[in-house]
Amino acid sequence: MITVHNLTKTYGENTVLNIDRLEIPKGQSFGLVGNNGAGKTTLFSLLLDLIQPSSGHIINKDVQVDQSEDWKPFTSAFIDETFLIGYLTPEEYFYFIGELRGRNKADVDALLSNFEDFFHDEILGQKKYLRDLSKGNQKKVGIVASFIGNPEVVILDEPFANLDPTTQIRLKGIIKDLAAKDGVTVLVSSHDLIHVTEVCERIVVLNKGEIVKDIHTSAETMKELEAFFAG
C-alpha cells in the first residue's frame, strides 16, 4: 500500500529522517515507536505532504504524494489539534469531514453511534465548541473523525497520549477492529510500548531518523523493545 523510497529530510546540516526503503502492505497495522526527535511525526507529515522531502519520495497506492493530490480521498489522519476546527461543535466538525468525504448526515450518525462508549457522553450534545473541550476530548473527536468515509489508510500520531485509562483501553479495541477490517492500513505512533505491541502486527523502531528495528509482533516483542530502549 505504502512504499517509501530513499526518503530523507534535512534541516540545514541536521538529518532528521533517513529511510532507504520501507514497505507497508495493504491491511497491515503498523506501529512506529521511538524517542523524542526520532522522526515519527516527520515521517507522518511527509506521508500527508505537509512537508517536502529533501530527497526520495513516498508512494501511497500508486500515487506519489508530493506530486499529486489523489491520495487524499482514501487517506485520513489525526496528527494534532491543528486538524481540528476550533469554532465548530463536535457534531458540525464530524458532518463537515463527512461532507468532504462524500458521507451524508445519516452515514456520519451511523458511524458515530458505534463510538458512544468511547465518547463517554462528553462529546456529543455538549453545547461546546471544540476549542473549549479538554485536550483528551479533543483528541477523541479527531481520532473518530479520521474514521469517517471508510479510508483505506488511517494515520494516527500518538493517539494514546492525553487519554484516560478507560479511553486508552477502548481505543485499543477500536484500532484492533479497524485493522481487522479488510484492507484498512493503520499507522500508529506511540511512546507507550505496551499499547503498540498490543495493537500492531508490525513494529518499526526509529532512532535519530533511521530504522533500527523492524519486528513482526510476537510474545517476545515487548522484551526486545524494552531491551532496546533501556539502552
Binding site: S76, D80, L100
Partner: peptide, 14 residues
C-alpha cells in the same frame, strides 16, 4: 491558519 494542516490533508482540492 489554525487548522491549515487539516485543510491540506483532507479530501479537498485546492
Amino acid at each position: 491558519s489554525s487548522y491549515y494542516p487539516l485543510m491540506m490533508s483532507q479530501n479537498i482540492k485546492y
